[in-house]
């Protein structure tokens, strides 16, 4: 089953074309690592999938429902905002800088959207949030404020918060890039656990070792285009593009 489908998606900021005719299908249970140099459009691609950015032209289909469809940059999206909101419920997102709500405790961060958006009963939301916290290993931080926990813990809370909305697809935008090296592992472990549960995921990352372990597909973006879409084995051993080889070697040296 196709979870995400992008058809001829283009997006510019001013004169700068950031997504240049993107075509991509992500199937159920796939874990897709998105790699590529900085500024190549990786974040923008993810953000178009959940509506944080509007596309200029093209079509995005989420689990068979058209989420966004535009024929030209200045025409209106054919999908209403209300409908978009319904469809984007299927996606959860995790950001590089966590973006936890600082005025809410860990558990309050997780129950916020289930209670206010889904209208879930508060006690039930708390019970579910506690299960999620157990899953990411942070039940003991239940009542801490975000400022009192480490970066790795923050990111695990952010993952639990996204999972609280019961998404079918998870988008990760460089989830470990803002972390001290010793905290990267704990976050990667949580993501690997999700992969084992067959969660459909798109992960932007610069951690090549992690990408090759967790992903069953890697796409390489360069200058707004997907220039490679293959297995981790192939991309890390003999990619078709010399650019990819240079990029991977450069990252490995860091």
């Amino acid at each position: 089953m196709k979870m995400i489908e992008a058809i001829n998606v283009c997006k510019s900021f001013g004169a700068h074309r950031v997504l240049d005719n993107i075509n991509l299908v992500v199937n159920k249970g796939e874990v897709v690592a998105v790699i590529g140099p900085s500024g190549s459009g990786k974040s923008t691609l993810l953000r178009c999938f959940n509506g944080l950015e509007e596309i200029d032209t093209g079509e995005i289909i989420i689990e068979g429902d058209v989420f966004s469809k535009k024929l030209s940059k200045h025409s209106r999206d054919q999908i209403t905002n209300k409908r978009k909101r319904e469809i984007s419920m299927k996606l959860g997102m995790v950001f590089q800088h966590f973006n936890l709500f600082p005025h809410r405790t860990v558990i309050e961060n997780i129950i916020e959207a289930p209670v206010t958006v889904l209208g879930m009963d508060k006690d039930e939301a708390i019970k579910r949030a506690e299960e999620l916290l157990k899953k990411v290993g942070l039940l003991d931080k239940r009542d801490s404020y975000p400022s009192k926990i480490s970066g790795g813990q923050k990111q695990r809370v952010a993952i639990a918060r996204a999972l609280g909305m019961n998404p079918d697809i998870m988008l990760f935008d460089e989830p470990t890039s803002a972390l001290d090296p010793e905290l990267v592992g704990e976050v990667q472990r949580v993501i690997s656990d999700l992969a084992k549960e067959r969660m459909t995921m798109l992960i932007v990352t610069h951690e090549m070792g992690f990408a090759s372990k967790v992903a069953n597909r890697v796409i390489f973006m360069d200058d707004g285009k997907i220039i490679e879409d293959c297995t981790p084995e192939k991309i890390f051993s003999n990619p078709d593009h010399p650019r990819i080889k240079t990029f991977i070697e450069k990252i490995a040296k860091r």
Binding site: R85, S88, N99, F101, A113, T116, V117, A162, M165
Partner: peptide
Amino acid sequence: KGQYEAARALNMDYFQ
């Protein structure tokens, strides 16, 4: 602006 984006990604509307 990350606060708005996180709220949006959790499907909260403007008033929420």
